[in-house]
Design a protein around this nucleic acid. Sequence first.
DNA 1: ATATTTATTGCGAATAATTATCAATAAGAG
DNA 2: CTCTTATTGATAATTATTCGCAATAAATAT
Lengths: 153, 153
Amino acid sequence: MSEINLKGTNYRLTKQRRIILEELKKVCTHPTAESIYKIVRKRIKNISFATVYRNLDFLEKNGYVLKLKIKEKKARYDGESKPHRHLICKCCGKIIDIFDCRGIIIRSKELKACGFVPDCGCLEIPGFCKQCEAKAKHLTINRFAPAKHKIIL
Amino acid sequence: MSEINLKGTNYRLTKQRRIILEELKKVCTHPTAESIYKIVRKRIKNISFATVYRNLDFLEKNGYVLKLKIKEKKARYDGESKPHRHLICKCCGKIIDIFDCRGIIIRSKELKACGFVPDCGCLEIPGFCKQCEAKAKHLTINRFAPAKHKIIL
DNA sequence: ATATTTATTGCGAATAATTATCAATAAGAG
DNA sequence: CTCTTATTGATAATTATTCGCAATAAATAT
C-alpha cells in the first residue's frame, strides 16, 4: 500500500483523500466519480459527493491518479498513476490497460515540421477488442468510415 | 465543395444539414456546437440550437464529419471526415491536424496478446506544441508526472 | 398537381455531470 | 492552547446536451 508524504506543502492528507486513493488503487477498473463515491461511503458514511469530486481533481492535478481523456459523459479515473496506455473499444466501450508499451511511433513529417512533442504517457487508443472485432467481421459496415450515404466530392 | 447523395435512404438533405456541413467544411478550426450555431444562424436566422446538435450528431454518425474524442467540456467537430490525427497541446489546448501520418506503431506484447485491433483513423495525441515545449524547458516541473508532492511506496 | 406519409424542425423544458458557495470543522503552526 | 488556513458537507448553481411534442417541410403515392 502506498503512502503520501505531504511535508513541505500546504496540502493535507485528510482521511477523505487517503481513503479515496486507497479505494481507487484497490480496483483494477476505471471507475467513475459516482462509483468511487459509493465505495468510499462504506468507510465514511457522510462523505459528500462534492468532496469526492474535489479530491479526485486534487489527486489528478498532483499526479497521484490519472483521469482518462476519453469523451464520455462521466469522467473515469485510474488509481495507477504510472504512465501507461488505454485501449478503448469503439464498439463496447471496454477499457484495457497496457503497461508494457515500449514506445509509440508516429510516422509523420507534418508532426516533425510543426515541432510538436508527443507525450503519450497517458494515451487512449481507439480500436476494437477481440470480441467486437470478431463480430464486426460478419458485417459489411465499414467501421473506419461509418458513412451510410455516399458523399460526392 | 462537397455534396451529399442521399438516394436510397430515408434521410433528407435538409437546408439545415447542408448549411451546417458547408460551414463546418469552410473553417479549418475545430469548432464547438455553439460556435457552429452562431455561424449557421447568419444564414438561417431562426435555426434551433437543438437542430445544430442533432445534425452534428447525424453528420458524425454517418461519417460526414468527425467529433473529437478529447475530454473537454464542449464537444469539438471537424469538417474533414478523412481519417487523420489531432495533436493536442496539454498546455495551451491547441489542436493541430496531421494528415500525412503513414502509420502509428504501438510496441506492446500485451496489446497483441489481448487481440485488440487499434483503429487510429481518428486519434488524439497529447503532447506539447513548439511554443509550450520551449516554455516548459525552463521549468523544473516534470510534465509527465505532474506530482507536486512525494509518494512513498 | 394534390394528398398522404414520414422525417425533421423549433421551441422550451428536462437531464445530469460537474462546480461554486459558504458556514462549520479539522488540521497544522506558533 | 490559540491562531490561521485548508478542507469538508450540504446545497444551490451552472451548463452542455438531450428530450418531448406540436408544427412544418420534404418525398412519395394518388
